[in-house]
Design a protein around this nucleic acid. Sequence first.
DNA 1: GATACCATACCGTCCAGCCGGTCTTTTTTG
DNA 2: CAAAAAAGACCGGCTGGACGGTATGGTATC
Lengths: 178, 178
Amino acid sequence: MSKVDKEAIIRAAEDVVRENGARKLTLDAVANRCGLSKGGLLHHYGSKQALLQAMLQSVVARESELANAYLDCNDQPGGLLVSRIQTLFAMMEEPAGLPRSLIAAVAEDPALLEPIKNQEERIRNKVCDDSSDPEMALLLLCAARGIFFGRVLGVVEEDAPLFRRLRERLLKLAQDLD
Amino acid sequence: MSKVDKEAIIRAAEDVVRENGARKLTLDAVANRCGLSKGGLLHHYGSKQALLQAMLQSVVARESELANAYLDCNDQPGGLLVSRIQTLFAMMEEPAGLPRSLIAAVAEDPALLEPIKNQEERIRNKVCDDSSDPEMALLLLCAARGIFFGRVLGVVEEDAPLFRRLRERLLKLAQDLD
DNA sequence: GATACCATACCGTCCAGCCGGTCTTTTTTG
DNA sequence: CAAAAAAGACCGGCTGGACGGTATGGTATC
């Protein structure tokens, strides 16, 4: 039993990235954020790379979790695409700058994205297999991801009512596809 | 007339980012890359921020240039969307890690993305105004941008024949929209 | 000789990782 | 069960290198 569990450290790191930018993601900052010394932090994660890997894995896990939850509500054929789109929208609504870990990671070392690349590919394949029109399914998925990345990078405002409408339209098209 | 013009410096910076990652975009690295001392580099761009701004502005300019060229070939109504989609695909075919400057910039200081955010918004508005079905136009644009960002971040492979097909499908849908 | 262009040397700061040591918890052993 | 020993958790200081930026001086061109 530890006073500060490893999950809390990852949360702290995400907080730092969200509040101060990816460049300021430093071991000291993370340590201070979760009331730990740098030595203590390095005791849990042996290096900064290890911490970043854990952050990414956490994102991957969170996405899978959400996707499975949504899938249970959409178990008609073609529901996989719908649940994935819902997942992407849900992740960008969350207050956590959770996916911004992506930026910190890719800035540090693009090779860290390997697991995410693999997950993306698996998702694409499954969505294609699940649809009668794989190309169109992929296209809708890409659209959702385009909106997602736009928000992650901060090149698009959040208040836009445009999002609700795009979301509805996307989901409608996805559902009419099965 | 200077031995190394400012454009060459930006190219060098892009090369560094592409080859060594955004985190390794350092003044020394850029200077070495284009056969210049750090002092010489700082003579042209007074600070690292200034260099990053110039890099981003270069991307913006390049995108506009491409878009205008494509627009001349698609001057039917609704051709704006088509040209924008073509532009995005063209930019990711280019050997330059040009758009990866985005990552370097957002890691350093997210505020640097302001001009890009504005440009994105202008494009969105114009595309919407130009189409009879604004939502669908936006959706197609987002799809193209999703593919674009996927490539920029490196979460998707390039060899995939999937891209040709998605590109064709996207362009077809965009053309049938006008 | 003034201005643009560029090199060298240097400074202050930041930061990842290391290390010795302390305190606590668990395991081993008599 | 109690004492000893080992393992785990954590701290704080330190260092060596990297990095952004400055200061100074040299060279070429007009």
